[in-house]
């Protein structure tokens, strides 16, 4: 029996997972907890958020995220792909900043609009 805290939503359910019984989950408040528990114990993934340099905008950084979850062990390498990236305003919401991050098929995209200032 493994104990996990679900991170799918802020509720943070305390899950109990029976690995020997095909990852049977108890303590979950919703179905997403079942999915999370199995993924977390087999191949854990995370959405990564960070920021990149931007020129000509109100701020010097533009926030970005992976538009899907990537394997946890690739987070450090994914962060490296953002080094040296510099956008120019205007930036559209959802603009692709780095394509196919570390071969995951997931892109880093901008998470806000930035107008030219």
């Amino acid at each position: 029996m493994k104990e996990l805290i679900c991170i799918v939503c802020p509720k943070g359910c305390h899950l109990k997972v029976d690995v020997d019984k095909d990852f049977a989950v108890t303590g979950n408040g919703c179905a997403r907890g079942v999915e999370y528990a199995k993924a977390e114990l087999t191949h854990p993934t995370r959405v990564v958020t960070s920021s990149v340099c931007v020129e000509g905008a109100l701020h010097r950084r533009c926030p970005v995220k992976t538009n899907g979850a990537i394997p946890k062990e690739k987070i450090a390498d994914a962060m490296k792909t953002l080094d040296g990236v510099c956008l120019k305003a205007p930036v559209a919401l959802g603009a692709v900043v780095v394509e196919n991050v570390c071969g995951t098929g997931v892109d880093f995209v901008s998470t806000r609009e930035l107008e030219v200032v």
Partner: peptide
């Protein structure tokens, strides 16, 4: 803080 943040910000 929230439990999920303990997990995904500290434990990870």
């Amino acid at each position: 803080g929230l439990n999920r943040n303990i997990v995904q910000c500290l434990h990870d």
